[in-house]
Design a binder for these strands. Sequence first.
DNA 1: CGGTATCCTAGGGGATACTG
DNA 2: CAGTATCCCCTAGGATACCG
Lengths: 124, 124
Amino acid sequence: MRDILTSTPIESCPVRQILTDVGDKWSILILIALSGGPRRFSALRRDIPDISQKMLTQTLRKLERDGLVSREVTPSTPPRVDYDLTALGASLMHQITPLAGWAVRHLDEITAARRRFDWSSTSG
Amino acid sequence: MRDILTSTPIESCPVRQILTDVGDKWSILILIALSGGPRRFSALRRDIPDISQKMLTQTLRKLERDGLVSREVTPSTPPRVDYDLTALGASLMHQITPLAGWAVRHLDEITAARRRFDWSSTSG
DNA sequence: CGGTATCCTAGGGGATACTG
DNA sequence: CAGTATCCCCTAGGATACCG
């Protein structure tokens, strides 16, 4: 796998692309929220209480641009916008789920490692 | 899965933790390089040509702190430092590999979606 | 309701120089 | 060789205000 690094320009490493893409502050949270089914803008705001309106819009646009999320506008008054995972987005979440499982199983281990590291830096 | 969002404080969502952790500019690139076997500092610099010395050190420290990477110093002159994946790091990479496969298989699709999005934004 | 537009700041990350 | 230390820039992202 290491040859990915030399065989392709770094910028185009596919793993890196999706990890940095989905690794920003809000993307996965939105994707997780949408994995429960379609959701309106305001519903997403409630799902993720501490996201700002700006970042919700901005991140949704990015995910839409990537083809991971669909956006359907109903031009009523007041307007109504429904977001949903696309097939591509759903298939990505299918990959994320085992990773989520790993994270849950090993979070304690990571936390413990951090404590050890910080402790031995401080005192030893 | 959506209940992760409400059942726990957002900050502690485990998936988010590892994704933002490994989603920074250099982490996966280093982890990928190390998944080929142990590697010296200077070898990693060659593997990832455009990383700065500062960021290589800094990112390695973070990964070490997380318990994903081990660091072994041989105090010779000149000094020698070997980095390697820990068992935890290797098990993480085990989860990343299928994700990498997905990324490779669907990168074209994402790129196409972006072109469509950018095109329809520009022209109508 | 579902957005823009504007302003502003914390910190990620590069370049360069120095050290044991 | 494998790092610190310093400086400096740029952008992700928050707060606030306005709009159809």
